[in-house]
Design a binder for these strands. Sequence first.
RNA 1: GUGGGUGUAGCUCAGGUGGUAGAGCACCGGGUUGUGGCCCCGGUUGUCGUGGGUUCAAGUCCCAUCACUCACCCCA
Length: 421
Amino acid sequence: MIQLIRGFKDILPGEVERWQQIEKIAASRFEDFGFKEIRIPMMERTELFARSIGEDTDIVEKEMYTFPDRKGDLITLRPEATASVVRSYVQHKMFAKDPVQKFYTIGPMFRRERPQKGRYRQFYQINVEVFGVASPLIDVQLIFMLVTLFTRLAVADLKAHINSLGCPACRPNYRAALSKFLAAISNKLCSDCRRRRRRNPLRVLDCKVPSCREVLAEAPSIIDYLCDYCQEDFAKVQEFLKKLQIPFLVDKRLVRGLDYYTRTTFEIQTGSLGAQSAVAGGGRYDGLVKMLGGPDLPATGFAIGLDRLAEVAEIRHSEFIRMPDLFVAALGEQSQDKAFEWICQFGRQGLVAEMDFEDRSLKSQMKRADKIGATHVLIVGDQELQEGAVILRNMLTKEQTLIPIKEVVDRVKTYIKREAQ
RNA sequence: GUGGGUGUAGCUCAGGUGGUAGAGCACCGGGUUGUGGCCCCGGUUGUCGUGGGUUCAAGUCCCAUCACUCACCCCA
């Protein structure tokens, strides 16, 4: 038996309806806020990700599915979507028509990590990106949109964590201060952190080793090093989150693993996901558009982990699983031929109709109708063909009515539709 | 990449100290010569994850390997 690739998964009927609901509700919510859908490819040239995400990040260093195509160019299955959206914005010079653009996109991402709860090698994200707006108010709006969406989807135990990473003007100062601090205590850090200290000191803050946490409690905080502009920016984010009554937590250790983030970053966490607590995360990435060859325009956005969201969203989805409206139980070859024509016509009319293609007893056909949840059964046999009328049985009330064969499809359709009201 | 747990029928799981497999559910048929759910009767289903080793004999012991799973790491 050929099995699916490790860390990949099938989403089967019964579960897929939940995903459809979530995607539908999310998309319409984003459209309510003026976002347009954009569809981008699943593969890009490797250098797009290497440059935007950062050469020193785990994603680029060891998690990407990268391989040469037949011509020898290095291509990569996207590990995230933002880089592609930015690439598209720049490539099509969308900023020329209007620098302000708001997009959302849904699709699979690929990272070769060790799978665990809430973490797959092919996973799905809903991404939202805004270009050309520098105001922190737009960050607030993104967080507001996320939290209200999650509330609508009945996600329990929600918390918004926010932080500011500063900008090119102030981050170097902080980085220097942090480096100095880390150098002084480096003998108390875990081996990972000692290695990270030089290449990417900010990420030491994210370490979960208890001994590191302990020494890091004394570490300088980015908040104290923000320049006036960033400080004001971050204060405004908090002010408006309060105004919109979004509960949040300033989390100094929220560093995030992608290099392109600046200023406000945020994560929506939930307690019900095991170790992978983030259902959504994002932040501002003001330098990325320019870095990828566009004008110096600000941008911000977030990504929702759809797999994780599907696990914690407690919306009822069973009602969206469509049951057959009708099962045609046919006895004998002649009746079966008729039944087949009818179910095709019913399908065309928007009624889900099933039949049994083996020539089974009426009893076993009734059993099957019951099993698949058909609300009605149409019974047809030699007797009915002769008399020119078939029997329509309501499986719930057990009521049976005669329907003239001449116009079965229309009559049954109106009968069932009327009953449904 | 590292560590723990698990792998027996389609599903959930039994199978002390080695003697070549079982239950419930599901599925199919019958009890009603053409009427479902409940009940009763009967029936089908397994390379015991895979490969090797020990043994007269391995689902059971040993080794390896793969997969699933949880956690570390990292992130959505």
